[in-house]
Design a protein around this nucleic acid. Structure first.
Lengths: 213, 213
DNA sequence: GCTGCGAATGAACGCGGGTTCATTCTTTTC
DNA sequence: GAAAAGAATGAACCCGCGTTCATTCGCAGC
């Protein structure tokens, strides 16, 4: 049989790779599986199969399924926070307004809003109420994100002639973004990335009239 | 033993109630369980125990667990939509601005934002990507809610001197509310109902300057 | 009061999924 | 080149959960 020949050639070449690589492979596979079947019905069998690895490997590198899930959440939040910080901590922008434009661009970039990541975010949000660990990771990530946005908004507010309530505006902006992401996830054909950007810019131009985002 | 006496008195008095009552009991129990342990680990045993009923009764009234979950989602969305429609379809408000104020009041009322309901909403949102049935129910509910908000905003926009992009403002408002709900769920001590209302009103006064919400 | 119907019960079943571990294979060290 | 270390495998185990169903019990009709 041809299949047999092919199989015997490609079959079972056991590869050994560093721990960090395996962990990432499994995390990425977990993300794909969550977006495909949902957090509540992901199985280790699916994840390891998707990663092209054997059944027992997850336990070797993560011990328990719960750890793999937690690391997956951390992976997504860290990646986002790093990306956002890269913009907001940068000193190369010529103005605060430009930095703000870059932020919006980033928040609705393909890499942030791609279906599999959005699905993972909200899957964990949905479980956060009942899982202290998820709750903490989400809350910490949100707090970090909010702090740096607030700093930027304070700067922008100072340049305004009209007094703005920076606290309320920051909370509002964060909420707006979360809500737009949710919309993109639930009805992607109704809420596109372009439309979402427009909505975010409308909000920002409303509160900071002097700038054009 | 006293306990024994009490037990033997209160024990196993089998009660028979109409189907609709049993279904609602189970749905309410499901909501409590989801908010306590999360959608991904609710079990039928927990639900029936929480409802104070026997193991098999859920299958008697819902056939499969999945049906009970779907009905629970429908229960929550229907309740919200009914409440919102009651305000937006009313003809007793003396002005559109007043109607808007009532809407905000409703959206952050205790009954809408109570932890158990929020938890249920977002638990299903999180699974919606991978479950067409959930997705459809959520999308339909959102669309209905958006339609009537849009109608109100169109009215309000017409009364403005400055032209507003009603579409973008509606999308923005809906997203803002969703985001605020998410914040209330994830960090209730940081985002209170009062604060959320203030943020929503700030947004509305920004886009409809002529009115005070 | 008796009977039949259907609501309610909960013990039992079977399966699916997480976890374990003996074994195999690769790499490193001496 | 041998041996030790440890990465990777996957069959097997066990537990928990959804579902079934024989049985019990309350109530309406006669």
């Amino acid at each position: 049989m041809q299949t047999k020949v092919i199989k015997s050639v490609s079959e079972k070449k056991r590869v050994i790779l560093p721990r960090a690589v395996r962990r990432q492979q499994l995390i990425l596979a977990t993300m794909r599986c969550i977006s495909r079947v949902g957090l509540s019905s992901v199985t280790m069998a699916q994840v390891t199969k998707d990663a092209g690895l054997s059944r027992g490997i997850a336990n070797l590198h993560f011990e328990r399924k719960e750890n793999l899930l937690i690391e997956t959440l951390r992976f997504v939040t860290d990646e986002y926070n790093r990306g956002q910080a890269e913009i907001l901590d940068a000193t190369t922008f010529s103005s605060a307004a430009e930095k703000l434009a870059a932020l919006v661009q980033f928040q609705f970039s393909r890499s942030v809003t791609e279906a599999t990541k959005m699905a993972v975010w909200f899957a964990f949000y949905g479980e956060a109420t009942s899982r202290p660990t998820y709750q903490k990771i989400c809350a910490d990530s949100d707090a970090r994100a909010a702090r740096s946005v607030r700093a930027l908004f304070t700067q922008l507010g100072a340049a305004q002639e009209v007094l703005v309530d920076v606290g309320a505006v920051t909370d509002g902006y964060i909420a707006l973004i979360d809500g737009l992401w949710l919309n993109i996830l639930l009805a992607p054909q109704k809420m596109t990335r372009a439309k979402a950007k427009r909505v975010a810019r409308t909000f920002l131009e409303g509160v900071f009239p002097s700038i054009k985002v």
